[in-house]
Simulated assay, not measured.
Amino acid sequence: MLIFDADDTLWENNVIFERVIDEFLDWMVHPELDRDGVRAVLDGIEAANAVTLGYGSKVFLHSLGECLERLRGRAATAQESARIAGWAAAFDGGRVELIPQVAETLAELARRHELLLLTKGDTEEQEQKVTASGLTRHFRGVHIVAEKNVATYEELTRAYDLVPASAWMIGNSPKSDILPARSAGLNAVFIPNDHTWVLEHDELDPGDDKVLRLSAFDELLRHF
């Protein structure tokens, strides 16, 4: 069984958030903090909100508003709130940009193996992206979860009666795709994405021979 992450593994996702953050940082001039300082405040707010509110564009826009209020020491004005709300248009789930060779590679892998899709975030938002991707037909099951932790992988293993040592989790996030899957006994394939969200970064054990590291998605065909 091959289990695939979605955002930033099958299609580009965080690059859209980064474009909005760049615009936010251009706008959010602070008398004492430079861009890196403002970004650090925003990262801290996002990390806290991910725990209590989850993921997705709505939580992200909420975090931008919270960051503005914290840095300016007051509530956002109607004009400021409207500007933040206007960034929602960047996250139109009706279209996605597939990463190169994903469609062709998945089509071939689906002829060789059973595939699952495992993604986290806002259910409605993720469903829209999965549908827009046109990839659903390749997967035996599509699972949208609030968090991808060890318990998530253990539950998926039980649901499909998987032998962990024969299953592979494929993704770009060390924090959500690789480390918890390995802790649950699965193998993993790490395919880095230059735009991976900073909060999804983590250190991988270079000596773990159950983690296959690839540089491009279509390299999967040489191993599976």
Results as ranks from 00 to 15, higher is better:
Asp5Pro: 06
Asp7Val: 04
Thr9Cys: 12
Leu10Arg: 09
Trp11Ile: 02
Asn13Gln: 14
Arg19Met: 10
Asp22Arg: 15
Met28Val: 01
Glu32Leu: 13
Glu32Tyr: 11
Asp34Ile: 01
Asp36Asn: 13
Asp36Val: 08
Val38Pro: 09
Val38Tyr: 05
Ala40Val: 02
Asp43Cys: 09
Gly44Cys: 09
Ala48Met: 01
Ala50Asn: 14
Val51Thr: 13
Thr52Ala: 11
Thr52Ser: 12
Leu53Cys: 09
Gly54Gln: 07
Gly54Trp: 03
Gly56Pro: 01
Gly56Tyr: 02
Ser57Phe: 03
Phe60His: 09
Leu61Phe: 06
Ser63Ile: 00
Leu64Val: 10
Gly65Asn: 11
Gly65Leu: 03
Leu68His: 15
Arg70Trp: 04
Leu71Lys: 13
Arg74Asn: 06
Ala82Thr: 07
Ile84Leu: 08
Ala88Val: 11
Ala88Ile: 09
Ala89Asp: 11
Ala90Leu: 00
Phe91Gly: 08
Gly93Asp: 04
Ile99Asn: 12
Gln101Arg: 15
Thr105Leu: 07
Leu109Gly: 01
Leu109Glu: 06
Ala110His: 11
Ala110Cys: 07
Arg111Pro: 02
Arg112Ile: 05
His113Ala: 15
Leu115Ile: 14
Leu116Phe: 10
Leu117Arg: 13
Leu118Thr: 09
Lys120Leu: 14
Asp122Tyr: 12
Glu124Arg: 15
Val130Gln: 10
Ala132Trp: 02
Ala132Gly: 02
Thr136Arg: 15
Arg137Gln: 13
Val142Ser: 12
Ile144Thr: 04
Ala146His: 14
Tyr153Asp: 01
Glu155Ile: 00
Thr157Met: 09
Arg158Lys: 05
Pro164Glu: 02
Ala165Asp: 15
Ser166Ile: 02
Asn172Thr: 07
Asp177Thr: 06
Ile178Gly: 09
Ser183Pro: 00
Ala184Ser: 09
Gly185Glu: 00
Gly185Val: 01
Gly185His: 03
Asn187Cys: 14
Asn187Thr: 05
Ala188Gly: 00
Phe190Pro: 11
Pro192Phe: 01
Asn193Ala: 02
Thr196Gly: 03
Trp197His: 10
Leu199Cys: 03
Glu200Met: 14
Asp202Thr: 05
Glu203Thr: 07
Glu203Tyr: 00
Asp205Ser: 06
Gly207Thr: 07
Gly207His: 15
Asp209Pro: 02
Val211Asp: 05
Leu212His: 08
Arg222Glu: 08
